[in-house]
């Protein structure tokens, strides 16, 4: 039996996407979602908010997804928090690259709002069974 997924930190610079993903994850998935608009905000917020999972856009202004992931890993308590990347770049080689960086999985963009929560849950379940 796996631990139930509840708290998701969502890192994304696009306000439109933030809104639709939050709605999808909260209404359909029943998760609690905290939004960060940049990698830096995620680094600031994650230690105290203590997410179970971080969902992160790859391409963001300032600090991009992979750099943010690297910095997160240096923070005590967040070194093992699973991170799922969301990106339009989903060539097999790119996915392997993200996984090599320590991402749990990659969810392609653009995503379908109706199934986003199910995709996240499925990744979570695979990792915890």
């Amino acid at each position: 039996m796996s631990m139930d997924l509840k708290r998701i930190l969502y890192v994304e610079d696009e306000p439109d996407i933030q809104a639709v993903a939050k709605l999808a994850l909260e209404s359909i998935g029943g998760f609690t979602v905290e939004i960060c608009s940049s990698g830096q905000e995620a680094l600031d917020k994650a230690p105290s908010w203590a997410p179970q999972l971080i969902l992160m856009d790859v391409m963001m202004p300032g600090m991009d997804g992979p750099s943010t992931l690297g910095k997160l890993r240096e923070i005590p308590g967040l070194s093992a928090t699973p991170v799922i990347f969301m990106t339009a770049k989903v060539q097999p080689a790119e996915i392997l690259e993200y996984k090599a960086l320590g991402a749990l999985d990659v969810i392609p963009k653009p995503f379908d709002p109706m199934t986003l929560a199910a995709s996240v849950s499925a990744v979570w379940a695979r990792a915890h069974d």
Partner: peptide
């Protein structure tokens, strides 16, 4: 399904 998460999905 014995995984509660998967059952929920």
């Amino acid at each position: 399904e014995n995984s509660a998460t998967l059952a929920e999905v």
